[in-house]
Write a protein that binds this DNA or RNA. Structure first.
Lengths: 246, 246
DNA sequence: GCAAAAGTGTTGGAAATACACCCATGT
DNA sequence: ACATGGGTGTATTTCCAACACTTTTGC
């Protein structure tokens, strides 16, 4: 207890006592962070998984997670775990949801905070392969260990929503990409087909793609033009949403 | 440690050991839940606050929160806290975000999971008034204790977004309401003005309002018709969103 | 020349916006 | 009668969906 935190002598002092002794003693709970890392490769959305350590979940796949240290910021723990497990450090993690059912972890009470990101599989080489760490096509993800199936599905749904409202997808593509690449990405994430002409029209009308005046190389068909995303212009837009619709 | 959770003898057994001893011993952290309760009254959006107990935050307002017990589901803790602090039990809480900076709480390391709901101020009488619990106009909320200002702002932003995608707002209104009531609600939450005729058109075209064939009483002007929301029909709609836009 | 995908416009319908007048009630 | 807000319709514009042919390249 920090010395300056004296109890106030009010009728509510008891609850404060309770909080402070709880912080120090009996009421603590193990806290973990789990990372759901999405990637895009061969026109498929993928997720990074490792083999579970626990006998109970022998052979099952699981997300990348570890306990949060008592003197570690929550987000810092997520970045540490990602770095330890994969070697990746130059990615932005976003918090998604916290899962806290009493029996979700067989080792005891562990509440887990989930973080999510999207990375370019080609640009971020995974260099730690313990526990068979590798990319799985999201269509084949099932029966994960713990409650990780639920966590994964929650993150995927959130990704599907956010990718339509923010230019997240560009993190999954090479720096230079064709409109076909971009459309493949959206189709893979949203699991739908889109009209090619309308898709182009939409993106061109946003006016956030920079035409690089370069062409695809070594494709067995007419090469497409290459673009990059205009992040500066996007930042300035600062668009805000109004539109009741449900 | 549950008996069936034997360590696998692999190169990764160490990390499992670490997790299990962490769960049992040193790596535990105090976990709290905070509730951000929004209400609507006198055509203003309000939030429930109490006076902070801590001397450090003397005179500051704070959210409703308490520690999560080791054998208590996360959501259960949030409902318990709400019930203890306000007497309310018939509301749906939704998780918003988890805040875990190391120094966010002066009593030590406390990670907090935030829950949010919207209630009808008239229908849910608050019957526990400890710590000066009462409704505050959201426009006047500032300098809350701890990091509660940030938490509050995060919840408000999320509310502004979600209220446009889901019929949350009806929880804030009387069972029978006029279109003016509904518009006032949206204007208060989103902090914008809307065109009255277009607002009506939008809601009528959704076809989710039931005309009760009743009129407002005791208003000093032409009385408006009263409606209720057709929740059954809404549930069946199961609308899904497609529309890239940023 | 053939296969494969790039590139390109138009049209019709739906939804959003902007806008002004008459009506019902209480005072 | 007047003040207050309820109720309504139309014209304009914008956005979205549907849809087919020509072009460029590799093989």
């Amino acid at each position: 207890m920090l010395p300056e935190e004296k109890i106030l002598h009010t009728k509510n002092a008891k609850s404060l006592h309770a909080i402070q002794s709880g912080v120090e003693n009996s009421n603590r709970i193990a806290l973990s962070a789990d990372c759901v890392i999405f990637g895009f490769d061969e026109n498929k959305l993928k997720v990074l998984l490792i083999r579970s350590d626990l006998k109970k979940y022998l052979g099952k796949w699981s997300l990348l997670g570890d306990l949060v240290f008592p003197k570690e910021d929550l987000a810092a723990a997520a970045y540490r775990i990602l770095k330890q497990r994969t070697g990746l450090s130059d990615v932005y993690l976003e918090q998604v949801h916290t899962f806290g059912a009493v029996n979700r972890h067989p080792a005891g009470r562990v509440v887990t905070v989930t973080y999510c990101t999207l990375i370019n599989v080609q640009h971020h080489k995974i260099n730690i392969l313990d526990n068979e760490l590798h990319w799985h096509d999201i269509k084949s993800v099932k029966e994960l260990a713990f409650d990780h199936q639920q966590i994964f599905e929650t993150c995927l749904k959130q990704l599907q929503k956010r990718v339509q409202e923010h230019p997240l997808g560009f993190n999954l593509l090479p720096k230079k990409f064709s409109l076909r690449d971009l459309q493949n990405l959206y189709e893979a994430i949203l699991d739908i087909k889109m009209d090619r002409r309308n898709f182009r029209k939409k993106f061109f009308s946003m006016d956030l793609l920079i035409d690089l005046n370069e062409m695809e190389q070594d494709v067995p068909h007419r090469p497409g033009k290459l673009y990059k995303f205009n992040f500066e212009k996007y930042e300035q837009k600062n668009k805000k949403w109004v539109g009741i619709d449900f």
